[in-house]
């Protein structure tokens, strides 16, 4: 699950960095450091967003409490 929240963390950190820069309390050294971090985060976030098209799976029980994932095909009927 940790890896799954990385995008959210990255975006939060990016926002934090911008507000830190806005506050102007940082030394030039510090600000250069976090600026670089910010640019890396921005790249990371953009890359994450443009990752492959989503997958749709179906959870199937195989008996004895085991599960497997199958590709989902939506049937168009009923209800």
């Amino acid at each position: 699950m940790t890896q799954k929240n990385s995008f959210e963390k990255a975006l939060n950190r990016l926002e934090e960095i911008v507000s830190q820069l806005e506050s102007g309390d940082l030394s030039l050294d510090e600000s250069l450091k976090i600026f670089q971090e910010g640019i890396e985060l921005s790249r990371f976030c953009t890359k994450k967003l443009s990752e492959a098209e989503s997958k749709v799976k179906k959870l199937v029980k195989t008996g004895s409490g085991k599960f497997k994932l199958e590709d989902l095909e939506i049937e168009d009927k009923e209800e």
């Binding site: 994450k48 967003l49 443009s50 990752e51 492959a52 098209e53 989503s54 997958k55 749709v56 799976k57 179906k58 959870l59 994932l69 989902l72």
Partner: peptide, 10 residues
Amino acid sequence: MPSVEIILNP
């Protein structure tokens, strides 16, 4: 959000 994964538990 095209990058999202979906798992249906029917």
